[in-house]
Every structure is written in structure tokens, then in C-alpha cells.
Design a protein around this nucleic acid. Sequence first.
DNA 1: TGTATTATGTTAGCAGTTTTAACAAAAAGT
DNA 2: ACTTTTTGTTAAAACTGCTAACATAATACA
Lengths: 398, 398
Amino acid sequence: MAKRGTSREINRQIVLTLIRTHQPISRADLSRLMDTNRATITFLVNDLLEEGLVREGAVGVEVKRGRRPTYLYLNSDQRCAVAVDIRATRTYLMLTDMIGKQVGNVISFPTEFAPETFAKTLAGYIRSLLENNNGLAACQGIGVVVPGMTDIKTGLVLRAPALGWVDVDLFGLLRKELPDVPIHIENSGKACALSQIWETRGGSHTHHDLVFVSISDGVGVGVVINGELMRGKHNTAGEFGHLPLSIDGLPCLCGANGCWEAYISNLATISRYFGKNLSRRQLVSLETANFTIEDLVKCARSGDGKALAALHLTARYLGLGLASIINAIDPEQIYLGGEITEAWDLIEPQVRDALKERTLTEGLGETSIRIVPAIEHPRLRGAVALVTAPAFAAPKVA
Amino acid sequence: MAKRGTSREINRQIVLTLIRTHQPISRADLSRLMDTNRATITFLVNDLLEEGLVREGAVGVEVKRGRRPTYLYLNSDQRCAVAVDIRATRTYLMLTDMIGKQVGNVISFPTEFAPETFAKTLAGYIRSLLENNNGLAACQGIGVVVPGMTDIKTGLVLRAPALGWVDVDLFGLLRKELPDVPIHIENSGKACALSQIWETRGGSHTHHDLVFVSISDGVGVGVVINGELMRGKHNTAGEFGHLPLSIDGLPCLCGANGCWEAYISNLATISRYFGKNLSRRQLVSLETANFTIEDLVKCARSGDGKALAALHLTARYLGLGLASIINAIDPEQIYLGGEITEAWDLIEPQVRDALKERTLTEGLGETSIRIVPAIEHPRLRGAVALVTAPAFAAPKVA
DNA sequence: TGTATTATGTTAGCAGTTTTAACAAAAAGT
DNA sequence: ACTTTTTGTTAAAACTGCTAACATAATACA
């Protein structure tokens, strides 16, 4: 039901989003973008100025004639957010302002598997991060991404194989340590997808349907449909990593056989290189401590044929799986993250060929794939989006 | 941008939807459902009464005390829609009122594969259907569902293997014959999903995420995410029928190998029963003319062990594929249509067991599956939804 | 230099909606 | 006969976007 103030709420959020994506921008430009009059914008902006969400800045000088516009900016300096990326080996942290811009360095520490002690350690790092940067006033929230299934309502980590966590109340543990800050916990793939839609929304080339595929120890996938994150009934939607390539194929950690993940995870690629059966986790962890996928790529680049062959086979399986995602979702854009993307120049042809083998139409075979390099910290950006995106979201009305 | 009248538009649609799903319903009940006052409802309903979309009916008598409510109904008698379901062998037609209620009988004629003559024949049937029922005044539109990929903007049938159609301008051909009626053309799976969301929306158990799987000569899938149909960039989203069960498996009509469809289509099941390789289309069409999946089910019911075994194997593959859909989408409800569902009592355990083999969590393994029997004409209802749903859709504002 | 032109941003009043509060209508209980 | 309860309507208030006029500030041009 649309109430008396619903229109205003909606328009407020639209203005806020447009300022975020177009700043610096004048009131007049906003009125043109929103196809309305300048008067309405004046009132909306005045609201945002009073609340301190927006500030006026310099006046424009590059105009031909007429009064110069006063530019508007998001007042992002006064608020901050903390992004946390929990991975199997290390946990990464970053401080950002409200538009997700990084403030200071990314710091990290080894991940402990015992939830209680881990939460205490993590809270300590967060506190020191906030204290050392107290020029930034209020912390708007902490976004935490996890390599596993989560329940966003309760903040429970339902299942994170890489961490050995089942039904861990991460929210509760962190809440006890940091009682005054909103905490958001989400699956890393979903968070990455959220950050992509949130970064492109309102811009000239907004994608309404996109998929984020992150390949590391497992395969994490986040899907945006019609501009909204696909969550599903249990917030477990997007588990494309366990689509079968062959129902009688390689055993997967999930218990089933022939999952895509079992063919393209970092473990699978390394295991393929060594030619051993490294399916048992203990063996794997020993091996990978000494030899990472980055090492494998280096080998391939310096002429190791076996390494290149292992990468090419992974590339082929990667393409075959992507074809399934494309046939199922028909996205405008696929984002691809993970260590193996650093070898994209070596594997792209194999990926694209395999993809075209199974996509149903020519158009689907040409689906755009964008590599997201590790240096962009996609998971940390996803964690930020958990905190910042709700502030810009339109109200639910239906 | 929310304009001055946007709130009213939104609320108008909500009222209309609530009357559709709850009729008969009083103004007072509407105000309670929408959590607002009766005055607002009075204004909104007056608008709808003037437009003739809603009518007042009997007064309620089963109230304990107080003034009796005057019940409101959708004024569905004055308008009608035509639903068309094009299938490989026959084409079906039905006349409905605006809430999708069937008027008269379902009629059908053999499908001709030449687009021009087919369009002329179809238009003739539609005209006679409308003339024989001209008590119903204005025809609001014609909804046509097709077993293939469509472009909803142009009305082109991009690819319908069962009909041998590629880039057929079905919209243009029908438009020439019926120039004054809006025509909607859509893939059958998508239309079925649309009809399900549209029939449950506003009700007590609205499903925001659902999947409709229709098994016949091919596998058609329609997906609703966050209450909206998933279309994708080219309106080809939802092609789960070509997810692989084994990338080296049975050849599929699409050119790839091991597609789910190649294991569970009616042709696959019949072919399995005869133990022959019926992959070539000519052979298949000869066989199936004499022996349908319904016959196979009859055999199984009367004790033919080979028939039952063929069904059970199809059931197993059906379950394995559904697991992929469930892992990917995590829907609240799966609807299952197609001839084979008439044997649901025979195959449900096998389907459910196979499904649980590959679903990632217990909750996902328990995903509700509802059989949609042929007598409910799901594809024709989908065709109706193409015409009627837009009249109830909320305005796009963001 | 002075005037016209152009663009930005503000203000007052108008128009369309929801909301509040009061009231009329109709039925059942006491 | 009177009170209570519920439905539906009406008038006025409050809030929102919209229109039109106007102030402000820059450039263009004679």
C-alpha cells in the first residue's frame, strides 16, 4: 500500500542514487535525468541537505552561458563502514566511506576455525580499525561475507565447508563483542553480485540481470534478476557450483558426483596438475599449503606444458558450466572472479569455445564476460554493499 | 520517478488484485487487508466502479452485528480474452472472462507447420469463437503460447524445434488477420509460470519464487523470482532443459550431448521402453503417432514391468534435474506439468529419492512439488495470463 | 558599457492523494 | 426504546508533486 509519503520516499532514494552515481551533479541535471521540474528537486535536495546525507560543493565553471550550477555531493566523509571477508586461510578487513571508497589499507589475519575465539579476534581488529580512523564519525555497519550458506534473518552461518562451520551463530558472537553497530552477514557470491548491481545502478549501462561467479576452493555464485538479488526461500539460491557435468563423474565434497565445482575449483586444477587423486581434504590441505594456483599459473607461463594443459582442461569445464548458467539465466553480463582469472589471457579461448558448444543460441554464446581482478577486492566490496546498499534501496510498496 | 498520481495507481492495482483474489470482499475488509482507513478505499473503489472494472453485488448476511457489508466483485463478464496453445500436433483455443475463467469448451485443430496458412486457419477459429460468444463485449486481447523461444517485443518466434519454426513473424501474420485486437506471444513455460504467480498473488500463500516445469516433447521451464518473471537479456532465460546430466551422454536435438531433456522427454521415455535408438526425428514421429506416453503409463499400470522400469528411470533423471533447478533457484514451490504427471503416483518416490541425492541441504530436498494435471490446461491458463496480468500489474516507478 | 539572452535555483499557489475525524446507515443486543 | 457495533460516506487537514512566475548569475552582442 502506497502511503501519503511513499512517493517522496521513492523519489528521495532516486535522487540519492543519482547523486551517488553521477556526482558531482547539479539540481538542474537531476531534474532532467528524472524528467521532472527543478522545483521538486529543490525540495527533495533540501530534505537530504538537512539530514546531512548530501552536501553542496563547488560551482560549475565549464558552462557556456547562464547561471553556474552548484554541484551536489554525497556527504560520505562523516560516515563509514567496515568490510570483512572471511576465507579459509585468512580473513581480510577494510574501512570505507559510505560510497564504498576504500579508506586506508586492507589488513588481514589468519582465520581461526573455532568460532568463539575467531569472533573475539575479529572484533578486536574491527575495534582498532575504527579507533585509528575516528576522524570518520559514525560507523554505519559491519558487512561480513562468508564462503557458505547463511541465513540473513538470523545471521547464522548454516554451512561453510571451507571453514568447517555448521549452524554457527556468527551474528550473535559478533553482536556480543560489538553491541552498538549493525552487523550484516551474507554469502560471498551473493554479496559480490549485490555490489555489482549497486555499482552500476543508475548509471548509463545498468545491468538488470547479471551473474557473479567466484572460483576459489569452491565455486560461489550470486545472481541478480530484474535488478534484485536472487535469494530463494532459504537464501541458498545460486548454488550453480553443484550442477552436474556428469552425474557419474568425480566425487565432490558435497557428497554428490560430477559437480561443476569438482572440475574447476583451485583444488581440482592443482590436483589435475599433480595427476593424483587429492579428493581427501587432509591431503589437499597439505599440498595446497605449498603450491597454490598462482604457482601453477607461473609454471604455465614459463613453459610448463603440463601446467598449461591442466589450466586448459579447467578452462574447458569452466566454459561448459558457464553455458548452463547462461542457458538458465540469460544474463546481460557475467563477472568472473578468483585466482584463476589471472590466467585469463591463457584460457579465454578454451572457455569461450566450450561455452559455445552448449549455449542454445548465437546470442547466448556471445554473452559478455568481465574479469574482476583480485586487486579490486570484489568480496570486500560486496561486504561494503551489504551495509551501504540498504540506505539507497527503494521502499517496498506492493 | 514517482509522479503525483503514482501512489493512486499503485493502490488502485492493489485493490483490483485483492478483489480478484478475495472476491466477494467488502470495502471494510479491503481496508483491513491494506492496513489503511475505509475512506481511502471508498475513493479507490469509486474510481474502479466508474470505470466499470468492478461491480457491487449482494450484501453479506453472515455477520454477527452491525451494518451488513456490500460485497465487491470483478466486473469480468463484460470483457473477454482468447487463449491459444500451439503444440506440435494440435493447437488448442479457449475463450475466458477477465479473471481467466473458462467460457465454453476448449476447441482444437491440427497444427499446420507452414506459418502463413497456419495463421490464417488460427485467425478463422479465433473469429468464430468471438462471434459465437458476442454476449461478451470487448475482447481485451489474444494470448498465444508457443513451444519455443520468442521475442516478446517483436512477437517473433525465434526458434521452435517442435514446429520447425525459425524467426517466424507470428505476430505480424496474426496482426494482418486480426488488426484490432492486442496480441501477446510468449514461450509456454514462461506463460505457465506467469499464470501461477498471477493466480496466487495477493492470496494468503503467495509464492515469490516458483518454477514451472513442463515435460512433453521437450522440457519447458518458467521461473519467477521475487514475484517477477525471469526473462533474461534475450527473453530466453529458463532453458534448464539443456542443463547436462552428462556432458558425454545421449545426443540431444539441440546439438549438444547429455541434456536433461534427452533423458526425460516423452520421446526419451518411449524410446527407452522400446529399447531402440529413436534419436532421429523421422523415426520418432512415426512411432509416437501410434504409441503415446499415455499408452505407456497404461501398460505400466496393467503390470508391464518394462514400461514401469522405463518410467522409473525417467523418474530418476527427472529428480536429478529438478535437484539442479532447486540448488540454483531455491524456489518455494515447483509446479510440474506434462503427460507423465498422470503417473505421478507411480514415480514420485523415485523422483524424490533422486532429488535428495543432489540437493545441498535437507530443506532443499523437501521443496514442495505440485502436479498440474492436463485438465487444468496450464498452458491455456498461461496464455490467458499474458492478456489479463498486465491489467493488474503495478506501475514501474524506479 | 549597457542590454539581451540563457541557464540555475527559489517561491507561491494549484492540484491530486492519503489521512483524520465526524457522521449517517443498518443491524443486533439489552 | 436505547445502546452497541460495524459499514460506508463526507468534509477538512496534511502532505506531495506540479505550474508559473521570479530572482540570480553568468555570457553574448551591439
